[in-house]
Design a protein around this nucleic acid. Sequence first.
DNA 1: GGCCTTAATGCAACAGAGTTGCGTGCAAGC
DNA 2: GCTTGCACGCAACTCTGTTGCATTAAGGCC
Lengths: 148, 148
Amino acid sequence: MTPTFHDRAESLVQRTGARVTRQRIEVLAILLSARRALTHHEVEDRANRSLGIDRVTVYRVLEWLTAHELAHKIAGEDRVWRFNAAGDEGGRSHAHAHFKCNDCGDVICLDEVRAARDIRLPSGYRSQAVELTVKGLCAECVPARKHS
Amino acid sequence: MTPTFHDRAESLVQRTGARVTRQRIEVLAILLSARRALTHHEVEDRANRSLGIDRVTVYRVLEWLTAHELAHKIAGEDRVWRFNAAGDEGGRSHAHAHFKCNDCGDVICLDEVRAARDIRLPSGYRSQAVELTVKGLCAECVPARKHS
DNA sequence: GGCCTTAATGCAACAGAGTTGCGTGCAAGC
DNA sequence: GCTTGCACGCAACTCTGTTGCATTAAGGCC
């Protein structure tokens, strides 16, 4: 549906060396074209409409994309995975934060923010990753009034 | 089974003004006696063994405890809620961080850490809460060797 | 203490998210 | 074009959590 995203997706999938399938390209293109993190359901909806891709395949492709660092998973507090295209940067790791809108549920990445590293843990504990989620209202859900 | 926790739990439940039931006391006592956040499954397991409390009742009691700020919910990335006794502090709010062990899955609260407030959001966005989760290995899961 | 009201519990059935097994189809190597 | 095996599609399943409804029991009232 969106040639540019489709082409970028195809190129990214090819670069992994694994099989290049319509399903992988299409799902990745859907993620690339979204400006926010999509739930499995949202991806399935679009993938199904455009290509009739199966529920399970969408799950498997999303998992595959995550494993190959073409997408990354975000755990929302509503027990639903959300997926974002990792874009061309590849392994930009999980050093960035997320913003989750409490009203519409949208999730976006806050790339500029790197979570503080100087966190004191109990003795013996070792930190591997820091996940920072800011919750609030996105621009579209903030009521018209301007004061806090 | 643990009289001290049981008594504290009973007192806390009474303080809400709502009905004081065996189930509420027992579930809260289980949370109080745990040094880490428990999943519903873990709570149910213990509650069922000691009092034969029903699955659904455990869900409802946990929800009730959360609503009355006697416990608080933590969303893990494994789609499972974890519950912590809020203790006597009551409304200490959600300004604290959590630590999640990538190996055994345990979750504990890191009370000392207050999440950074100076996070730049896209224009129009409004922050309501900040959730910070440190992931890594807890003292019991860190392998014997000492270097990073 | 016994009775009454109503909230809370227990049971069963359901719902949504994600997984597994297995036969079929198709991408890619020859 | 033929072959091979990975990936897909379908169905059935698991797991977490929820809802409806009849039954039980907490706590007020006499």
